[in-house]
Design a protein around this nucleic acid. Structure first.
Length: 571
DNA sequence: ATTTCCCGCCAC
DNA sequence: AAACGTGGCGGGAAAT
């Protein structure tokens, strides 16, 4: 059983950019460390042979090193039969944390578990770079530092492989037979494949969006400058200038920020003034257009494919995250068409499936309230049901499209807020009602869901006694007892994350024979790219694979759609 | 001059 | 009595 830990030293973090590729590889076995200059063919060969001979390959943040290795030397560590173990994931599974998250960086873990001077390397390297006049954090900074001080850099690079090896040894023993670790191991290659394949962009759409949103921004800006001076719209001093200008226009700002006590100018703080002050609407339009441009549109310009990275265990609840770029917060609400820039490749379609109200279903499961569970199992609308409980009448009077739809939304939003731990003041704020009305609303929800409050009490007591909740898949999820009110959300969100990970594993396996590849995971949604001729069938088996992730009562439900056009057209 | 903090806002 | 959860990111301000 050969275990090899490896690491790459790279010019940057964008592994898909030829400018930011790896220049050095290091690896360690039980007794030795090795280093390869990746510009030398014989050293590359030694490196590749070492990787290829391992039964267990280990890396810290393995996806990054896998991508760098593949792109730099043309050898894909995932192509081997052996296992890939990521000490970052292992540490997070072995030592899950609550909201106060410790560092899971290699050096910090090594400092704690391997060597007291593990962190010194960072300071030394920074010092070396400085004395050589190199900007370490800039692209190529590490490469330049290596060129200037090859022996020192290589020594530290070897140590990283050693630390990774030793951490693996520690965690592998602890995690033997751990179900959560087994699931994470199955998830990782799927995410790596999704990152590697990436999502195709239609540049015609990107440039059209750019034009459209520049126009929107400029129009809003023109309107705004009738009310506000230029210096309130960006640049140094603009934050204070904006608040001052709004006050000068008579807008009675009163909400202050928590940390620094400045006047809030957020959408929420301004919404109460939008009917009386036209500046508020114009400001909102301007900020939306500006944000869409800088965050979602301009970063996509000139790319054929976008390769996100997934934080497999990034959220403390077990949820995944997505970064560089974040593909989990691309605008979709309110008719935004930004998702239209993401398109299936030629001859392919997207199959987009998401769990229906998974958090409500989990809540129903944990409440154990028979009537509520059956109502959901029958496919009825829990939010319309709740609205009817609150306001009387039949639930049909509150479904989407009816006169009572806004009361349904109120019930839904309040229900979510309460699950997240909101109290009467926050519920009053969000619903534009008095605190007394909010109390009455919460009381009515409480009355119609006795199981909810029993559950909440039970969870809080468990958190206060044991410091954790236990998710649907038996995963221990720490929650700080001082904030036991988040326990319910941790349970529901954490269990939904478990389901999604199992669902993803099921999906990847099921769609593979039909050429389907998961490209994205967005908490309760999976996007699969598939040859168009197989799309109908793959949609059906994807739904089934997700539904079968767990036998819940009420059962899980999945709805899917097939699009040949773009991501915006899904659903 | 560089890094970190803060605010605001997109998603689920 | 009180406390709405999980993320990432862009731009400006504050800290170093």
């Amino acid at each position: 059983m050969t275990t090899i830990a490896f690491d790459t030293e790279t010019r940057g973090l964008a592994w898909d950019d030829p400018e930011e590729r790896a220049f050095l590889a290091t690896w360690a076995d039980e007794s030795n460390e090795y280093v390869a200059d990746l510009s030398k063919a014989d050293e590359v060969e030694t490196f590749v042979n070492a990787l290829d001979s391992a039964d267990v390959l280990v890396a810290h943040n393995a996806p990054f090193d896998v991508h760098q290795t593949r792109e730099t030397v043309g050898y894909d560590p995932l192509s081997r039969a052996g296992a890939l173990h990521d000490t970052n994931i292992m540490a997070r599974v072995a030592m899950p944390a609550g909201q106060s998250r410790p560092s899971y960086k290699l050096k910090d873990l090594a400092q704690t578990f391997v060597s007291d001077d593990a962190k010194d390397a960072e300071d030394d390297i920074a010092e070396m770079a400085k004395s050589a006049g190199i900007k370490l954090k800039a692209t190529g900074g590490y490469y330049d530092t290596w060129r200037a001080y090859p022996e020192v850099m290589e020594k530290y690079a070897r140590l990283d492989a050693r630390y990774t090896y030793e951490l693996h040894k520690k965690f592998a023993a602890e995690l033997d037979g751990n179900g959560a670790w087994e699931l994470e191991q199955r998830v990782q290659p799927i995410l790596i494949e999704a990152e590697k394949r990436g999502i195709a962009l239609d540049q015609d759409v990107v440039t059209d969006l750019k034009t459209e949103y520049e126009k929107r921004r400029d129009q809003a800006r023109a309107t705004l400058t009738e009310f506000l001076p230029e210096e309130a719209l960006g640049g140094p001093g603009s934050e204070e200038a904006l608040a001052d200008s709004l006050l000068g226009l008579g807008v009675p700002l009163h909400r202050k920020t928590q940390k620094t006590g400045k006047y809030q100018t957020s959408k929420f703080a301004l919404q109460e003034f939008e009917n009386d002050y036209p500046v508020v609407g114009a400001l909102s339009d301007y900020r939306t257009a500006d944000k869409f441009l800088s965050t979602y549109i301009e970063p996509m310009l000139g790319r054929d494919v976008v390769h996100t990275s997934f934080g497999q265990c990034e959220a403390w609840t077990g949820r995944m995250s997505s970064y560089r770029p974040n593909m989990q917060n691309i605008p979709s609400r309110g008719g935004a068409r930004v998702r239209a820039m993401f398109v299936p490749r030629e001859g392919h379609s997207f199959v987009v499936c998401d769990y229906d109200s998974i958090e409500v279903r989990l809540l129903a499961y944990y409440m154990g309230q028979a009537g509520y569970r059956e109502m959901i199992a029958k496919g009825l609308d829990p939010h319309a049901w709740m609205a009817a409980q609150i306001h009387g009448g039949r639930m049909e009077d509150y479904v989407k499209g009816s006169d009572g739809e806004s009361l349904r939304s109120q019930a839904k939003n309040t229900m979510f807020a309460i699950t997240y731990g909101a109290g009467a003041p926050r519920v009053a704020d969000m619903n534009q009602m008095t605190r007394e009305e909010a109390k009455a609303l919460i009381a009515k929800i409480k009355k119609s869901l006795p199981g909810y409050y029993r559950l909440n009490k039970r969870i809080r007591e468990k958190v206060e006694a044991e410091g954790h909740v236990t998710t649907l898949f038996g995963r221990r999820q720490p929650v700080s007892p001082e904030k036991s009110y988040v326990g319910l959300n941790a349970l529901i969100q954490g269990s939904a994350a478990d389901v999604m990970k199992q669902g993803l594993v099921n999906v990847a396996e099921a769609v593979k024979p039909y050429g389907g590849v998961p490209l994205l995971v967005v908490h309760d949604e999976v996007v699969v790219e598939v040859p168009t001729e197989n799309a109908q069938h793959v949609a059906q088996i994807t739904e089934q694979a997700m539904t079968e992730a767990f036998e819940l009562d009420p059962h899980l439900a999945v709805s899917g759609s097939i699009v040949d056009t773009n991501y915006a057209d899904a659903k």
